[in-house]
Design a protein around this nucleic acid. Sequence first.
DNA 1: GTCTATACCACGATAGAC
DNA 2: GTCTATCGTGGTATAGAC
Lengths: 254, 254
Amino acid sequence: MPQAPTRLSPADTKTRILDAAETLFVSGGFESMSMRQITGAATVNLAAVNYHFGSKDALIQAVLARRLDSLSEQRVAMLDVFESTLGDKLTCEHVLVAMFLPAVRIFRSGDPLADRYLHFLGRAYTDPSSVVRDFINTHYTQTLGRFFFAFQRTLPELRREDLGFRLHFAMGALSGILAGGNTQRLIRDFTQEQSDHEAVILSRLTTLMVAALKAPLPGAAEASLFGEMANLPGLELIGQASAHAAAEPDAVLS
Amino acid sequence: MPQAPTRLSPADTKTRILDAAETLFVSGGFESMSMRQITGAATVNLAAVNYHFGSKDALIQAVLARRLDSLSEQRVAMLDVFESTLGDKLTCEHVLVAMFLPAVRIFRSGDPLADRYLHFLGRAYTDPSSVVRDFINTHYTQTLGRFFFAFQRTLPELRREDLGFRLHFAMGALSGILAGGNTQRLIRDFTQEQSDHEAVILSRLTTLMVAALKAPLPGAAEASLFGEMANLPGLELIGQASAHAAAEPDAVLS
DNA sequence: GTCTATACCACGATAGAC
DNA sequence: GTCTATCGTGGTATAGAC
């Protein structure tokens, strides 16, 4: 708790840096945001980042922790409430809601930055930088474990490996959707749909996710259907027809 | 068609650069791969990239086009075969197979680089760099449009906007899963499952995706269920309990 | 046409003055 | 706590060798 700030409401240098870094991280990812952009937007000196955080890597970790730590806590707390209140009546819908609702709730608070917050989550879970990935992996193993066992309880008919895959699916789908300014705009062009509030999106998302998690395991019928499709006459030529690029030997890869 | 190469089998300087850039792109994303890394791995001069491609941006676009153009062609070609062969008997499973099979097929060719290829697709669809995103968006609008209308045909009960969202979901889920070295390792730790061949992963993926796409629209029952969960006693305190970070005003964001 | 050497400005990081 | 100067490395541009 610092006291006697140099000016009236400069909102704390550290916080200003965090905010500016978060904005730039959302729009371009970790590697493309520069210290000079950050410190410029925050109207602080270039060296301030290194003084307050130590390095650009440490800064992004602080940015991630500020949002994700509390989110992680809320997710686990919500799961705790569901489990202790409902006992054996816990369903996989509840577990999914515990995963998604803490993010959706930001909207109900009326925060105008809510859209950006979800976008931030998507970026955090998909950024290719090893700094970001390692942080996510090391800091949220516990949370993921809690949800894994909760899903296992509500979906006992799934084998461990199928459950693992479907949880991976759920996380990947969520990340991909949140991260995707990619397809979002494109799809809107086809549907001529005006931009949904993302809270609506997340509630629709839960429906799809439940359907996927509860899907029957692919039996013999589905497997053979898949095989039949793959062997439909006419398909075998497709690979060769445009193989000019795909068939390259790719020799030099170390 | 170049002739009389300077040396016997230097595999073409241009191709060597493309291969090296692709490898580095898969492991770290666009922004973190440096020209000096690329040219070093390809054993060419630093300036060769600028000579053959013009810039780092143009290089990554060439890398993307080399793989994605033929993939896009194969996807559309496969959809054409399904539509002309099956007519009205076309199902949404077929459309999904047309989307995924061209990627899965790489495995059947026995290419040892198949795993890396799928990883590459994931990176391409999730990389935060605006260069990569813009390329994906501008070059594959047509393909996406073809699949949109095919889905619309096989799922006539869905409204345009629901279909748009679900297609967005399908793309996002696929991207997130392919890109995710994130959760993949973590999940494996819980399941103690050995690394699956990614072809198996994609066949399992189709099952989940079909379930999600065919999911019944959230009716009044589901909506109220969702509402009930959100208002369970005990939940309303969760946001406040750890609001120290989440409730910040976030004033400086431009 | 193809490749090389080298010079250029922006980047992250750090030491030291204030 | 804050700022300036500086170092090594990033992408880029170009002049000249083959």
